[in-house]
Design a protein around this nucleic acid. Structure first.
Lengths: 188, 188
DNA sequence: ACCAGTTTTTACCATATGGTAAATGATGTC
DNA sequence: GACATCATTTACCATATGGTAAAAACTGGT
């Protein structure tokens, strides 16, 4: 739980009592590999914070191919926030790539904390923003070639390459698995 | 100026007096085509809101090629917000693709409004978030082929294709200008 | 209207990546 | 430990895109 506290403190000022209040609203969720945290077509009802493991966002394109849109490692929020806020159906799955441990806020608690903690609104928004910045900084750059994108992936997510199926990484980078396999071979 | 008011009202509650206060802090900036709103290497000092014209974010990669990272049309914020907030040097240029009219907040005003308007913080953050959502929704999808990406671009930015140099669009989509020219030809 | 400079198109070949298929390697279950 | 299942690698050819170069079409200034 300390991880969440650290994360919050790095963002805004909040005292010990308030932190306890925040923590009292959380639950710990253990997700097995491949389990979903939220699903496409459903309205997201909770916010997660990854303590252990790797999550991913993914969807199925019009050819039925499964595309990984992002990876989410520990110390990050896992939620489809636009649809969470708007109470609209998500268009992607949030799935555990490995066994995961996640701190969970229900939507009610996440929002009601704004009434009990002055400044929670600001902290909330900053957390979401940081999350978005991360995602965009770590997204593959479309103007780079596949090898460069894979090397950048290795830098951005040093511990992921061995833990995560090649197919997930390939679709994240916008190449086929065969291409990625070839790229791996050429690198060493 | 009405455009900004509409934008703000759609995000949060704010009364007429407060709107006037916001407006009193703004200035109108006319940018000629190709002029910069902010530059790589400099600390961004202001937030813009596009009234007319098209802006873009761009940078030079390690091969010296100019890459367009995003387009910003009217009714959107134009600012490198992470570096604006952190007082750190930007890594990209924000440049006018066409003659532009922009509403400008200085950093001081943008931040001080939080002291005079209750809830400005929340509005501010929501504006930035919306901006980020837009950008990510309208970004080319790396797993799609170049033609599909161009067709999506035409949908996302219906009025841009004729107004903006091919080279800008090409680097945004991650293809060479020659390829994009060929794609255009094959489409009709 | 002309010219210089820029942008866009076209052409040609080289190359990276995709598609299909099969072989190899890993993993978990009984 | 044997087997079925799934993930990864390899091979082969097809194709989209890149690179270089030149031609054609615009653009703005005089």
């Amino acid at each position: 739980m300390q991880e969440l506290t650290d994360y919050i403190l790095q963002i805004g000022n909040i005292n010990k009592q308030q932190i306890e209040l925040v923590e009292s609203k959380t639950a710990i969720l253990d997700l097995k590999k491949d389990a979903y945290f939220s699903e496409a077509g459903l309205i997201p009802k909770r916010v997660g914070f990854v303590l252990e493991g790797v999550m991913r966002g993914c969807y199925y394109n019009n050819k039925g191919e499964e595309i990984t849109r992002c990876f989410i490692g520990k110390g990050n929020l896992v939620v489809d926030y636009p649809n969470f806020e708007a109470n609209t159906a998500s268009s992607e799955y949030l799935q555990a790539c490995t066994d995961c441990k996640i701190i969970v806020f229900s939507k009610t608690d996440w929002e009601e904390l704004s009434n009990t903690i002055v400044g929670w609104d600001v902290i909330k928004n900053k957390m979401v923003q940081q999350c978005l910045y991360q995602k965009s900084r770590k997204s593959p750059v479309i103007s780079q070639d596949a090898t460069t994108r894979y090397l950048a992936f290795l830098k951005n997510y040093p511990s992921f390459a061995n833990r995560i199926p090649l197919a997930y990484i390939a679709s994240f980078l916008g190449v086929t698995q065969q291409s990625l396999s070839r790229i791996r071979k050429n690198i060493r």
